[in-house]
Design a protein around this nucleic acid. Structure first.
Length: 294
DNA sequence: CGCGCCTCCTGTGTGC
DNA sequence: TGCACACAGGAGGCGC
């Protein structure tokens, strides 16, 4: 089973694309499904037309977003959503079942294909977005970014009137974290995801951030396979998912720390996994708001 | 403006 | 065998 891409998976894709697509000139773009470019308001035809003739000069990432700066100063924005893949395939490779967008290049070599079963992902064109597309400027830096500010994160987290897991999934506070790594970091921190953010001490928030960084870093190393193969994929065979998960997806299995069976709870129309003993539910929810006094 | 809920989407697995 | 439904969940949009 392919994991839903979070920071480590997207970074793996970024590195693969950087190797195989940088410096190549696009000659044609085929949009096979309009939903794949729904964020591009001028439409699929415009998307294809404006990209023809452009050269990809780099591949960058902000959280779970990718963007490909172009020689024109513009950029292609990409998000993999839940099931998206950016594949580099030989031109004669058969079309994938869920092929949504195909890029052909002037060198006649491999194609870039956006494949996405559930179509939560998509591509867009960002005018003038080579440096950082305005469309994703609201996304925070990720904790592996050298310019990520730990004190700002700790302060921002504790200023929120919310729950800690919600805050980890809020890409405007910290980016790159999804449901899986949020649960893993919370397990390591011995925190239940419903813990109120404004009741976290600075040391507790700092420890949580360290665990988030560790979890992402370990997954990055595990997923950092070689790119010798002419095939870029968000790959579920990294081994991280086979051996290293302590909470996510382990309902009923013994906690690796205390042996208690891991529990699954509904959360935001999905699931949260935690240890009932190491991560007790908070006795109270978030404190009543006191902001309105203003 | 901050926060939280709803919705988009389709293949897979499960229970009756 | 077939149908109904739960489930996977990122993030934009919107209501309060």
């Amino acid at each position: 089973m392919r994991p839903v891409p979070e920071l480590p998976e997207v970074e793996t894709v970024r590195q693969g694309l950087a190797k195989w697509v940088t410096g190549r000139r696009i000659t044609s773009v085929e949009v096979h499904h309009p939903r794949a470019v729904r964020r591009h308001l001028p439409g699929a035809e415009h998307f294809a037309a404006v990209l023809a003739g452009r050269t990809v000069v780099d591949v960058c990432r902000r959280g779970k977003y990718l963007w490909l700066p172009l020689d024109s100063g513009d950029a292609i924005i990409g998000h993999l959503g839940m099931s998206g893949q950016l594949l580099v395939q030989p031109p004669d490779a058969p079309d994938e079942t869920h092929l949504r967008v195909r890029f052909r290049f002037a060198d006649g070599g491999s194609e870039l294909r956006f494949v996405d079963q559930r179509t939560f992902g998509g591509l867009a064109y960002s005018e003038g977005g080579a440096e950082l597309p305005a469309e994703i400027a609201h996304i925070a830096r990720d904790p592996m970014d050298p310019l990520f500010s730990d004190p700002d994160f700790v302060a921002g987290l504790r200023r929120k009137r919310s729950e800690v897991k919600r805050a980890l999934l809020d890409q405007t506070l910290i980016s790159g974290v999804g449901n899986i790594y949020a649960d893993e970091a919370l397990w390591r921190s011995r925190l239940h995801g419903l813990r109120p953010t404004d009741a976290l001490t600075k040391p507790a928030a700092t420890r949580l951030l360290a665990h988030v960084r560790d979890v992402l870093g370990e997954a990055l190393v595990a997923g950092g396979t070689s790119f010798d193969a002419l095939y870029v994929d968000v790959n579920g065979e990294s081994g991280y998912f086979d051996r290293s998960l302590n909470a996510y997806g382990r309902e009923g299995e013994p906690c690796h720390r205390c042996g208690a069976p891991i529990r699954r709870e509904p959360f935001m129309n999905r699931s949260s996994y935690s240890c009932p003993r190491c991560q007790p539910r908070p006795r109270r929810g978030i404190s009543p708001g006191t902001r309105s006094g203003g």
